[in-house]
Amino acid sequence: MNAFEQTVAGEQISGPPSQTDYLLDRSFRGLATVCAWLILIVVGLILWKIGAKAVPAISEYQLGFLTGTTWDVNKQVYGILPEIWGTLYSSILALIIGGFFGITMAIFLTQDFLPPRIALVFRTIIELLAAIPSVVYGLWGIYVVIPFVRPIADWLNAEFGWIPFFSTTLSGPGMLPAALVLSIMILPTIAAVSQDALRMVPYRIKEAAYGLGANRWEVILKVMLSTASTGIFGSLVLGFGRALGETMALAMLIGNSNQLSLSLFSPGNTLAALLALNFPEAGQHEIPVLMYAALVLLLITFVVNMAGTAIMTMTSKQLKAGR
């Protein structure tokens, strides 16, 4: 070994990755890959585990489970039609209310109505609404919303009782307070996603409309909303998905009564609330039945959420291509 080689070997500052480096690199990348696969596996596992546990109930009750209207543990008769109805009814009501306020908020915040500071206040309000846990909304619903809505509901029932929506009195928990609280809970989702959709509309389209002499709301209604319509629709679908799966506030406010009613004031039940209430005390025989109900809820929400995600992916691609 000559002097030159000695100095290089002694004060080596660079060199090819060592065997250890290669090994670490490979194993780290392998680990990351495994974790990415884990996400796929988890989704599959959820479907498989809940599905497998539901199999005994599926083979016993088959599709009659979906159209049955009684839930009687003692007689072992189970049906979830009232719950499916309650889930859809409360979510649609919430979507109408939350959708109107959410989209209006999104327009309000993106179309230069407000100086930046006041816009920040409203933006913070929406973010705070999203941050409040659903059980707190449930508590607030019981002690604030129900006492507030009750006189109005009873008056409507007395005066307009012939309209099917007002055909019962509100005796405490019921569909209307549940849907009101639910609409507050999905408002942030709708507002946030719609805001993104409105922001993605290229500025020059809006400028062109103003240039033609349109006033602000003409621009908003005829140009902005129609350009961003797919994204806004996506926000509604995602909000609907949230509403379908929301549990605690509904379990506390909807009344948990197994009935099918068009009345806004009658108590009802939802799939998620059914699970929350019956699972902790379920017997051996009831668990597969509840798993069946869980599977139904899972499939409904997965379909709705996948549709929402697909719409959002589509819009962002479209608008990027249009730019």
């Binding site: 809940i50 995602l238 799966g245 549990t247 798993m291 869980a294």
Partner: peptide, 26 residues
């Protein structure tokens, strides 16, 4: 894989929290 994993993650954001409980129970 990344495409599907991303899609699955987005779908999981909409997983009803009660079903996470049902899964952990099972």
């Amino acid at each position: 894989v990344a495409y599907v994993a991303r899609f699955c993650a987005k779908t999981l954001t909409g997983l009803p929290s009660i079903l996470a409980g049902v899964f952990a129970y099972a």
